[in-house]
Each structure stands twice: as structure tokens, then as C-alpha cells.
Design a protein around this nucleic acid. Structure first.
Lengths: 215, 215
DNA sequence: ACCGAAACGGAGTCCGGTTCCGCTAAGATG
DNA sequence: CATCTTAGCGGAACCGGACTCCGTTTCGGT
């Protein structure tokens, strides 16, 4: 008894499916009319189920939130205390990269707030475990860890599938830096300087003539 | 001899001024009609001087790029080899935070490419100096450093003026982690857990923010 | 079969970026 | 100063996309 009529349920599913497809193509720039067309419904229907574009995107991102939480719980239950934060961070990064959800949804969306809250609690516990077991530096806070999580999500977003070495190295470097004692040596980087351009995608936006005026 | 007519010069300045004001209020969401109105000119005039919204934003951000470069050069000339990267990173972060430019302009804008290139060269030299003088870990690459610069810019953007402690700690933590040997102890954090929500601003309901990320 | 309510669809509104083109006036020339 | 050329101006118009409104359709209970 969802209270929804049969056709409503069907349409909702179709819309979500269409939205996922559109999202795969255009990312968060997906167009509502386009989604409606793909789903074979009117725009009005799309809006009845998802009151705004953002809500629709949130809905698409939702499975990823679930996955993140599941990961955190798994880590909390099975990983050794000292390694929890590291394992979680790596797993989260990989999940984010493979799921293709814009990580910023996770932080932007009001809808994701409960998830964030729960996640924060878990991350805090990881940090705590790590500190207590002496693997993480004693002055690390849950807030610091969360900020790191955020920046890494952004970096992965921006990389958009290209050159995962960059964010993987970033993750390892960061984890290493939070560890107590001498850092492990990372293997030699498999790329040379000068490849940054094009990593973070330019907004294209043609034009950009080298305007050079001041004040 | 700019080749520009006197009124054109005047209008260009007015537009830029209006754009700065608008930007201060609405950030990169500034509206072209609004800018034109404030400047007391027609939209057409705005577009003659800045062929697109992005170009206008680039123009606003330009002084910041200059500032970043100037900082980098100053650091390169006056700071001790081992401290260059750290000093630059801190200075850059503070400049970004105080200037109010969305840091992502720096990476998005095609117009900023020359700046990025030069900056990358300088950062590479800082990393190099640091490694050679034994303060930075030997396996750190310029690419890593640039990625860090990027993530910190994003973090500062997202903070939008609130709670600078968060990104300041992040900077110190990161720098500490890149250093050779045991990390220094950071002073106790001046805030408690649970303050993350609201730090990264939620995109709220608002609508077509038209972000540029994808899948 | 009938009816009320839930859903639907899509034309219409609003908004904001960008374009187009007829008009204005800067400034060069005589 | 009068005249002409044309850079530069203004803003109506266009366009695409989010979101709304409301008359119509369909579900599902009786």
C-alpha cells in the first residue's frame, strides 16, 4: 500500500530510468523536457514525482548514498581499528569514481542530510579508533577528516573519469600525511609534469578572449 | 592608442564596475541584464565588451590571477627554498579567501590558461626546492602539489567566507603531511564536531544553477 | 456502470543568456 | 563649422530550459 496508483508507480519508475540515462549523457546538466520525452510522459508528470530538477538529481544519487553508508558500516564492523579511516576513504573514493554520481550532490542536497549525519558519525568513530590505536595523528578531528573526504570527492568529480592516478595518489598522500610516524614511500608517479591542463575540465564556454584589463 | 573610442572606454569601465558589484552579491550567478542595468548601458554593450557571461566573469577574476602570480614570484625570490611551497600555499589560500573570487574560475577559464601554465611552473620549482632541501617528501610531484592547490581552492570556495578555521587547518594538515619526518602538532581545534552542515552551502531549492560537472 | 479523486500532459509563463539591426554620436576630414 | 564614416550603442527579439496551471484522462472503489 504505497498509496500510489498503479500508473503513477509505473511512470515514476520510467522517469527515474530516463533520468538515469540522461544523467549518464549530460550529467547534472540534464534537461527536464528531455527526461520527460525519454520517459514517454509529459513534463508535468516528471514534476509531480520530483518537484525540481535538483530533487530528480538527488533521487539519482540516492543509491550512491546508500552504498556509501553500507561501506561505512561494513568498515566499522570488519576492519581493524587502526585501518578503518584509510579503508573507508579508499573505498568511498573508488565507489564515487565508479558510480559516476557528482560527489557534490552528497553535500549539496538537503535530501542527503540524514545520510551526511550518519556518515559523519561513522567517520568520527573511524578517526577516533585510528587515534586511539596510534595510527592516526592525535590532533586529527572528525571535522578534518570530513573536509578531506569532501575535497577528494570534488577532485574525483572534476576528474570525470580521466586519469584516476591523480586522485588515487592524492588519497594515498593524504592518508600518509595523517599517519603517525614516517610516511611510507609512494611508488614513482607514472606520469610527467605538464598533464594537468585538461584534467579539470574547462567549462568550455568558448570566447574567453584574453581580456587583460585591470580594475 | 587603444583604438577604442572614448565612450567605449568609459562604458567598458562602467560595465566592469557593475559586474564586480553584481558579482559581490550573486557570485558567478550574476545576470547580464542586471549588470547592464547597473552600468546604465544596454545589454548589447555589455556583450560587445565581453562576448559571454563567462568572459565577463573571467575579467572579474583576472586581478586575482595576477595577484596569485605576483605572490608566486615573490615567494620564489625571497623565501628559503625549503619553505617556498608552504608559504605559497598559505598565501594563495588567504588571497583566495579574501578576494572573493570563485577559485574554480582559475581552473575553468580558458582565459586563465597562461596563468595556470606559469603558476604550474613556479609550483613545480617550489616542490623541487622543497624536495632538494629535504623538507618535502622525496616522492612528491608537482602534479600532486597542484592537485592539492586545487582542492584547497575548492574548499575555500565552498566555505564562502564562513569558518576559515576549517580550511586553515586543512592547509596546515596537508602541509604537515607532505613534510619529511614527524609532523608538528597542531594546536587544539577551536570547534567541535557537528558543525559541518551548513559549512558547504547547500544549493537550496533554487533551480537552474546549471553546474558544469557530470556523471 | 458510475463517480470522485488521483494522475496526466503539454501549452503557457518566467527568466536569463545571446543575437540582431536600426540608430547615435565620436572623431576624422575638408 | 559642416559633413561623412563607422565604431559603438540600445534594447527588442529570440531561444532554450525550468517550472506552473488547468482541462482531460484514467484508476479503482462501490
Amino acid at each position: 500500500m504505497t498509496g500510489l496508483r498503479a500508473d503513477a508507480v509505473r511512470n515514476r519508475k520510467r522517469v527515474l530510468e530516463a533520468a538515469r540515462a540522461a544523467h549518464a549523457q549530460s550529467g547534472t546538466a540534464l534537461c527536464m523536457h528531455e527526461v520527460a520525452r525519454r520517459a514517454g510522459v509529459g513534463v508535468g508528470t516528471v514534476y509531480r514525482h520530483f518537484p525540481s530538477r535538483q530533487a530528480l538529481i538527488d533521487a539519482i544519487a540516492h543509491p550512491f548514498f546508500e552504498r556509501g553508508l553500507a561501506l561505512a558500516h561494513a568498515v566499522a564492523e570488519t576492519e581493524p581499528q587502526g585501518e578503518r579511516f584509510a579503508r573507508f576513504l579508499r573505498g568511498f573514493a573508488e565507489a564515487l569514481a565508479s558510480h559516476g554520481v557528482p560527489g557534490h550532490c552528497m553535500w549539496d542536497a538537503p535530501a542527503a542530510r540524514p545520510v551526511r549525519t550518519e556518515l559523519r558519525g561513522l567517520v568520527a568513530s573511524f578517526v577516533d579508533s585510528g587515534r586511539r590505536s596510534g595510527t592516526l595523528r592525535a590532533d586529527l578531528t572528525a571535522e578534518d577528516a570530513f573536509a578531506l573526504l569532501w575535497t577528494i570527492a570534488m577532485l574525483i568529480d572534476a576528474s570525470d573519469g580521466r586519469r584516476p592516478e591523480i586522485w588515487r595518489r592524492h588519497v594515498e598522500l593524504a592518508l600518509d600525511g595523517l599517519r603517525v610516524g614516517a610516511p611510507a614511500r609512494l611508488e614513482a608517479p607514472p606520469f610527467a609534469l605538464g598533464q594537468w591542463d585538461g584534467f579539470v575540465h574547462e567549462t568550455a564556454a568558448r570566447a574567453g578572449s584574453g581580456e587583460a584589463d585591470e580594475l
